[in-house]
């Protein structure tokens, strides 16, 4: 069982959500976040004072997946979140030691 974490463009969330649903992904967690890698931030101006905001608004998607499904889900996210411009984001995968569904008490693969 693995945790797939994807940082994507906010305006791609809808496309990614639809693509994942078409591949039987029944749940995900999303959060709004800010960060930077290669994509430059933007400037704002208030009464002549110019501010630089280096951190770019992104959406973080987290999905718990069975090992066998991971490669396919990564391909789905890459395909649906891709624009080709700097700032498309990153995906990484981490090993999960344990997961429990609170309502039923099911563990690990049964829980996701």
């Amino acid at each position: 069982m693995k945790l797939i974490t994807a940082i994507i463009r906010p305006d791609k969330l809808s496309d990614v959500q639809i693509a994942l649903a078409q591949h039987q992904v029944v749940g995900m967690t999303i959060s709004e976040c800010s960060g930077h890698a290669r994509q430059p931030g933007h400037n704002e101006v208030y009464r002549g004072a110019e501010f630089t905001i280096d951190f770019v608004l992104k959406v973080k998607i987290e999905i718990l997946a069975r090992d066998a499904a991971v490669d396919q889900l990564i391909a789905v996210i890459v395909e649906s979140a891709h624009s080709g411009q700097v700032g498309d984001g990153l995906i990484w995968v981490t090993e999960i030691g344990q997961a429990v569904r609170i309502r039923t008490g099911e563990c690990n693969a049964e829980a996701v």
Partner: peptide, 28 residues
């Protein structure tokens, strides 16, 4: 409060890498 004044930016700007097209790639 993550704004800074221009010129004091802490971001290292790295040029983009080569082109990539997801449909032509497998991500295994």
């Amino acid at each position: 409060r993550y704004a800074s004044y221009p010129g004091l930016s802490h971001t290292v700007v790295v040029p983009a890498r080569e082109d990539f097209s997801p449909s032509a790639t497998t991500t295994t």
